[in-house]
Simulated scan of single mutants.
Amino acid sequence: MPGRLFLTSPLDDLARDLGQPPPPAAPPRANIQPGEDITCLTRDGWRAMRWELIPQGRKNARGRPVMETLINARSETVFDKSAFDGLKRCVVPVTGWYEWTGETRRKQAWSLQQADGAPCLFAAVYDVWQAPGGREVPQVATVTCAPNADVAPIHHRMGVLLEPDAVATWLTGTEEDAAALMTPWPAGRLAIAKCDDPNEQGR
């Protein structure tokens, strides 16, 4: 599942294909980490959001407050769990994401992206956190599902990826229509390669 993202290409062509104005220009980002802002597409257009969701006032199935922050939401429970009540849907477009395998201190980083170079369109959910002092913080979590055959050797989960023509359904369709989209990406369409650890770059 995505724990680090990278966005190294402009989104102008994607925006045009989706019938959207281009998002605000931004420099390439090789290592987008939880807690940082990412560009998201909502039903109302582009919006910068913090990739980390504080489950404000939400409770688990036992009625206890949910305390931990979330960067990913499981597709199997995102529409059922009380911790996700009231969330809206959005899309996080990126060039790709990273995964790691191996033991601590000897981990191998992997980059994953579409083989044809098209952006990866992650299904996501969001809300607006009322921070101390009255500040409003838009916050987002990507949605995950079981891995496809390509990702399974690297990780037991992967982000839900959307086809461009499914974006409108994810943003504005019914929960039933959106749930039908939360399936593993077809095998054979990802380029997966070993890479230098992005967390070590620049140290």
Score class of each variant (00 low, 15 high):
residue 107 K to G: 12
residue 60 N to Y: 07
residue 116 D to C: 12
residue 75 S to P: 10
residue 92 V to K: 08
residue 100 W to S: 01
residue 42 T to F: 08
residue 103 E to F: 11
residue 55 P to N: 09
residue 68 E to V: 03
residue 48 A to F: 07
residue 97 W to S: 01
residue 55 P to V: 06
residue 36 E to D: 08
residue 70 L to P: 01
residue 39 T to S: 12
residue 33 Q to D: 05
residue 120 C to E: 05
residue 80 D to A: 15
residue 38 I to C: 14
residue 67 M to N: 10
residue 67 M to H: 10
residue 63 G to N: 07
residue 104 T to W: 00
residue 63 G to R: 06
residue 75 S to E: 01
residue 79 F to K: 05
residue 108 Q to C: 07
residue 88 K to C: 09
residue 79 F to D: 15
residue 62 R to T: 03
residue 35 G to E: 07
residue 96 G to W: 09
residue 70 L to H: 06
residue 98 Y to R: 08
residue 92 V to T: 11
residue 35 G to R: 13
residue 32 I to V: 15
residue 94 V to H: 04
residue 63 G to L: 02
residue 97 W to M: 02
residue 82 S to M: 08
residue 56 Q to Y: 09
residue 67 M to I: 14
residue 63 G to H: 06
residue 66 V to F: 01
residue 94 V to P: 06
residue 40 C to Q: 05
residue 118 A to H: 13
residue 67 M to R: 15
residue 32 I to C: 09
residue 89 R to M: 08
residue 100 W to P: 01
residue 65 P to N: 06
residue 115 A to Q: 13
residue 39 T to C: 12
residue 82 S to V: 04
residue 45 G to L: 08
residue 60 N to C: 01
residue 87 L to M: 15
residue 111 S to M: 10
residue 110 W to E: 04
residue 64 R to E: 15
residue 108 Q to F: 08
